[in-house]
């Protein structure tokens, strides 16, 4: 289903934050922003929910570390016990690097996949660029048009806050 959005283009990051927080106060839902680089305080200004990437990474970190411990313990103490320098077969000290690496590996891969899933990025995706300057030095505040058609309201809001460069898109 095509979604209709209205984007207001802003040149200054501080003005971008200011207009964004005003849009939140005004009561617009499902706000979004397009930025060439991360702007601090953007999530708070727009009232965006925290993403679940950290939670996914933490969960997979614990699972990965646990699997690593299980694997290292099983290979060196159960399946093929080898005496190394008279140390106990199950020596947690020696397993720590493996456990750490397994945890980091799984958490890293999970972060990567989750991020691309959330950003709806996948191979052969046709990227829709609403304006080239957004990758360079311009910011866009994106407000979706709801079914009840609040187009006038949004346009008026942008005008009131000094954003002249406004355009409508279908994505």
């Amino acid at each position: 289903m095509p979604n209709k959005i209205i984007a207001g283009f802003i040149d200054d990051p501080e003005q971008f934050l200011e207009v964004g927080s005003k849009a939140k106060e005004h009561g617009f839902k499902d706000l979004d922003g397009v930025m060439p680089y991360p702007v601090h305080g953007f999530e708070e200004a727009l009232g965006l929910k925290k993403s679940w990437v950290p939670a996914a990474a933490k969960t997979m970190l614990v699972i990965g570390a646990g699997l690593g411990l299980l694997f290292a313990g099983w290979t060196s103490a159960v399946d093929w016990p080898i005496n190394v320098g008279g140390k106990p077969l199950f020596s947690w000290q020696a397993f720590i690097p493996i456990v750490f690496e397994c945890g980091v590996l799984l958490a890293g891969i999970t972060t990567f996949i989750t991020l691309f899933h959330l950003g709806r990025l996948y191979p052969a995706k046709d990227p829709k660029m609403i304006r080239e300057r957004l990758t360079d030095n311009q910011f866009a505040l994106v407000i979706p048009i709801k079914d009840n058609g609040n187009r006038e309201d949004i346009m008026e809001f942008f005008k009131k806050n000094g954003v002249d460069d406004v355009d409508e898109f279908e994505i």
């Binding site: 320098g85 140390k87 000290q93 020696a94 720590i96 690097p97």
Partner: peptide, 12 residues
């Protein structure tokens, strides 16, 4: 800290 401890423990 762990690097110091583990290498000392391992090499003995």
């Amino acid at each position: 800290g762990f690097s110091q401890y583990m290498l000392i423990w391992y090499a003995d």
